[in-house]
């Protein structure tokens, strides 16, 4: 007689209903793997089919002639710029909010209001955020946007990155709060007992300990930012080329309009006007690569051994 240690060995002895439920759960998991694999394999196949490194360094131009419509250097720069700008806004803001909620959180009513606000922002569709941003940057913050000979369009990298940062913000706040909450209270007390203030404790003990969590939140947020299209279309103009909004200086670049990989894929897809689906496929492949890379970073950060205290 063998010992049954695996639950699978005894499936045959289960009631029929349990067997069906078990296999339904198993099939759902398998189906998900199949879909993910299909996306990856198809995009890798198409990407390899139209693989052309030249596209990465060539600027796009609006030409119906495939040979003259160029590559997607500008959208690539656009995606990178938005990732950096929105993370630069979302990470410090999100960490500050998380620290206040976890370490201070008084008055309690205000803390609850902040929590609700984060949930509202997290639940708002990005197209709604984009519409709100458009009004904001047209009416009040026009000096930060591209102006076409006096007409304020409310579009710029700054405008798009500001609204994009709201997509990333709840993820940064959530991951940072989780990291701070996992630090036992007696570690904070140990710092106070050495005569340290709360601010010194947060800066020198808590935030360094929460660093992997903050990194995880930021990387998750960047993944969302890289994949968003609505804000790019409404607030960045989704132009093919980056247009400098000033006299060609750095501030002008951030005031300028442009596009990202997502808007480029849409433009060249059979649904858009570019009529270059093969370029769309390669750009989509690159975009997928960027997002998978960010997910990989998340996994690495999350797996990094968090310091464990004896409880």
């Amino acid at each position: 007689m063998s010992l049954r240690t695996s639950p699978l060995d005894s499936v045959r002895s289960w009631p029929l209903r349990d067997c069906l439920g078990y296999f339904a759960a198993w099939a759902a998991g398998m189906a998900l793997i199949a879909i993910a694999a299909a996306i990856l394999i198809y995009m890798a196949y198409r990407g390899a089919q139209y693989f052309d490194l030249g596209l990465l360094i060539e600027s796009p131009s609006s030409s119906l002639n495939q040979a003259k419509s160029g590559g997607f250097r500008d959208p690539l720069i656009g995606t990178a710029t938005l990732l950096v700008l929105s993370t630069l806004i979302a990470a410090p803001l999100g960490v500050t909010i998380a620290v206040w909620l976890t370490e201070y959180g008084r008055p309690a009513g205000l803390a609850r209001a902040v929590e609700s606000a984060i949930e509202v922002v997290a639940g708002t569709p990005s197209i709604v955020l984009a519409m709100f941003g458009l009004i904001l940057f047209q009416e009040w913050l026009g000096f930060l946007t591209f102006d076409a000979e006096g007409a304020v369009l409310g579009r710029s990298f700054i405008a798009a990155a500001s609204m994009m940062s709201l997509i990333a913000l709840p993820l940064v706040v959530g991951a940072t709060r989780e990291a701070l909450n996992s630090i036992p209270g007696h570690v904070r007390e140990a710092s106070y007992a050495l005569g340290k203030t709360k601010a010194a404790t947060i800066r020198r003990v808590l935030l360094p300990a929460a660093r992997p969590g903050i990194g995880t939140g930021a990387a998750l947020g960047m993944g969302r930012v890289a994949g968003d299209t609505a804000i790019v279309v409404v607030l960045l103009g989704a132009t093919l080329q980056i247009l400098n909004g000033g006299d060609g200086d750095v501030f002008g670049f951030f005031k300028g309009t442009g596009g990202t990989l997502t808007s480029y894929v849409y433009y060249n897809s059979p649904a858009g006007e570019g009529l270059a689906p093969e370029k769309a496929y390669f750009a989509a492949f690159v975009l997928l690569g960027v997002v998978i890379l960010l997910n990989f970073v998340v996994a690495r950060l999350a797996r990094r051994r968090e310091p464990a205290w004896i409880r």
């Binding site: 036992p184 007696h186 140990a190 007992a193 020198r204 003990v205 360094p208 300990a209 205290w309 004896i310």
Partner: peptide
């Protein structure tokens, strides 16, 4: 002060 659980900082 020294606490019940060892709590070195990370």
């Amino acid at each position: 002060m020294v606490f019940q659980q060892p709590n070195p900082f990370p």
